[in-house]
Amino acid sequence: MNIIVCLKQVPGTNDVRLDPETGSLIREGVPSIINPEDRNALEKALLLREEHGGNVVVISMGPPQAEVALRDALAIGADEAILLCDKAFAGADTLATSFTLGSAIKKLGHFDLVLCGTKTLDGNTGQVGPQLAELLDLPQITYARRVEIQGEILKAERVFEEGYELMETRLPALVTVTREINEPRIPSIDQIMQSYREKEVKTWGAAYLGLYEHSVGLDGSATKMSKIYKPEFGKGKVEFIEGSMEDMAQGLLAKLKERNLI
């Protein structure tokens, strides 16, 4: 079974800051990680490989530093890694990202399954998976918390508001997984070393993929960011209910009574 896992390198924290002068994101000093749900997707791919045999290819679009995420994926157990890296890819929204990823997957040729995390920690849009499925004309199942494959048939439990639904489709397909699906493994020290010393991360650019610059990156994006800012909250008029424990409990109930809440 040939499985392709799409992954993204994201800042390991949400506690990001803006440069007060330029208003742009400060990325220095913020450690990068593989997007957590993408780790779940990779883990699922490895489990499926253990069960059915085959090959796991990880693919990521990003700056040269994103090679680190792919090295990590190789350490964790992926067979091959491809970095889609080109100045022309910069500034891509999900439309342009899915186009670039999709073009690379088409170039890879035969595959049975594409796995993605449902959402990323940074953008949190959850759009690249479905857009990739559309581009590759694949059936999609999003929010999968369980995936099983028998022969050509893929079954998945898809989370929705009221519970979950059991979905079925035929391979090839694209599935996006949630964090519930598994607990990603952590590579051992020697696997980490091997991935750096013995394995290769291929780098593909726009020219190699035969893509025009206007269809990728910022130029190939339909959305533009017009403003980025830190939100402000705060009512700043808190009234403390004080006294003994009993006073506080009764004080709170009195407030609720006042408002007819009890």
């Binding site: 990680i33 750096y196 010393r197």
Partner: peptide, 17 residues
């Protein structure tokens, strides 16, 4: 080195989890 950074990253993940 990049390998050493990777060790730090992975062991940190293990330790935190």
């Amino acid at each position: 080195t990049k390998e050493q950074e990777a060790i730090t990253r992975m062991i940190r993940e293990f330790a935190e989890k």
